[in-house]
Simulated assay, not measured.
Amino acid sequence: MTRRKTTNPTAQRDAQLLEIAQRQFRIETLETQNWDRLDFHDVAVWAIRAALEEAFEAGRRAGPANTQV
């Protein structure tokens, strides 16, 4: 019997968001570092737009959420 690998959807989402932030904003981490110089960044509006578009497309590719209310 083959074991299915379980994945944490929150961890996957966080990893994708970090990849987008690193690529679009050159930010090393999305964790709070309690140092203004590391926690606040000047970002161009076109970079914000590109990151939002990339995140939107990632969500669209992931498909509808499997949540029940």
Rank of each mutant, 00 (worst) to 15 (best):
M1P: 05
M1N: 05
M1L: 09
M1S: 08
M1K: 07
T2H: 04
R3P: 15
R4H: 06
T7H: 09
T7L: 09
T7V: 15
P9S: 02
T10V: 10
A11P: 00
Q12S: 08
Q12T: 11
R13D: 02
R13P: 00
D14N: 10
A15P: 03
Q16E: 14
L17T: 01
L18Q: 13
L18R: 02
E19M: 07
E19A: 15
I20V: 06
A21H: 00
Q24N: 06
F25V: 01
R26W: 00
R26L: 01
R26P: 00
T29N: 02
L30M: 09
E31L: 12
E31M: 12
E31I: 14
E31W: 04
Q33E: 14
Q33Y: 06
Q33I: 08
Q33C: 13
N34F: 15
N34T: 05
W35V: 11
D39P: 01
D39V: 03
D39L: 12
D39K: 09
F40M: 10
H41R: 03
D42C: 11
V43M: 03
A44Q: 09
A44V: 02
W46Q: 10
A47R: 06
R49L: 14
A50P: 01
L52E: 06
L52I: 08
L52K: 04
A55I: 02
F56S: 12
F56W: 14
E57D: 15
A58G: 13
G59Y: 02
G59T: 05
R61I: 15
G63I: 10
G63R: 06
P64N: 07
P64T: 12
P64S: 09
A65R: 05
A65P: 00
N66H: 10
N66S: 10
N66E: 13
T67A: 13
T67W: 14
Q68W: 14
Q68Y: 13
V69K: 06
V69M: 11
